[in-house]
Simulated scan of single mutants.
Amino acid sequence: MSIRTTVLLVAALGLSLTACGTEDGTTVDTKPQAEASPSAVGSPEGANAADAPRDEATTGGPLGQGVSTVGDTISLKGAEDGEELDVTLVKWLDPAKSADRHTIPTFGKRWVAAQIRLVNTGSATYRDSPPDCVRVADAEGRRYDATVADIAAGSSMATELKLAKGDKAVGWVVAEVPKGAAVTSLQFIASGGAADETGQWAVREG
């Protein structure tokens, strides 16, 4: 192909590309667009904050993820047919003070206490020793059973309880734990701990 022919061909191509402009005289950019960066598409950094999914841990319950805490009620079944309770952790004390000067925690230990309300929602009379149903756990996973003690905050839960259908009982249950233990939860297992279901509440010091 001669040099003259080549020049004419290039000129013709230039005219053709110019003709591809839009009707208002602007040209169409035919270069490929750069790929969008990951931060601009499909990532939290590039997403609109209003469209971002909500953090479920902040809406699941009082402490997130539906965790039960002070004031919450849990329904639990007992070991026998027809036994069912609504168990409420009414108040929590850490530490708890003795009702008198003569009965105090063992040296190096402290008392924690839970005020619990029990309502018989089942079809049978409920008989139990509620302190035997309670235990607390610390941040290390160690568990402590209830102990017999009277505290200044109020009356203790009965150790021999008989609730007819619809009846309720309220009282404090005390546990003795090491002074340095960070108690984090309280458990209630009906029928003296023999039932299959476990109620658990998150608790804190103070």
Results as ranks from 00 to 15, higher is better:
D72C: 08
L76E: 12
L93P: 01
D72P: 11
D86S: 08
G71Q: 02
E80N: 13
V87F: 01
L76R: 04
V90I: 13
T88F: 05
K77N: 14
V90E: 10
G71A: 06
P95H: 02
D86P: 01
T88H: 07
L93E: 07
A79Q: 14
K77E: 15
E84P: 09
V90C: 07
I74D: 03
T73K: 03
A79G: 12
D86Y: 08
K77P: 08
L76S: 10
A96Y: 03
S98P: 08
A99V: 10
S75T: 15
L89S: 01
W92R: 01
E84L: 12
D86H: 04
V87Q: 00
A96K: 02
A96Q: 02
A99M: 08
P95Y: 02
V87E: 00
T73P: 07
A99W: 08
E83C: 07
A96C: 11
L93C: 03
D86V: 05
G82P: 08
G71F: 02
W92D: 00
A96H: 02
D94C: 07
K77G: 15
W92Y: 05
A79R: 11
A79C: 14
L76D: 05
E84I: 08
W92P: 02
S98E: 11
G78F: 01
S75Q: 15
S98W: 02
K97D: 13
S98M: 05
V70P: 01
G78E: 04
E83T: 07
G71K: 04
D86I: 02
E84C: 10
L93V: 07
V90F: 04
V70F: 04
L89M: 06
L76K: 02
D72E: 10
D72V: 04
D81G: 10
V90W: 01
A79L: 14
A79W: 12
D86K: 06
I74K: 04
L85R: 02
L93G: 01
V87M: 07
K77I: 09
S98N: 11
E83D: 12
L76H: 03
V87R: 03
D94T: 09
S98V: 08
L89V: 01
K91W: 03
V87N: 04
I74T: 11
D81A: 14
P95Q: 10
G71W: 04
D86N: 15
T73G: 03
L76C: 06
L76N: 07
I74W: 07
W92T: 00
I74S: 11
A79S: 15
G82D: 11
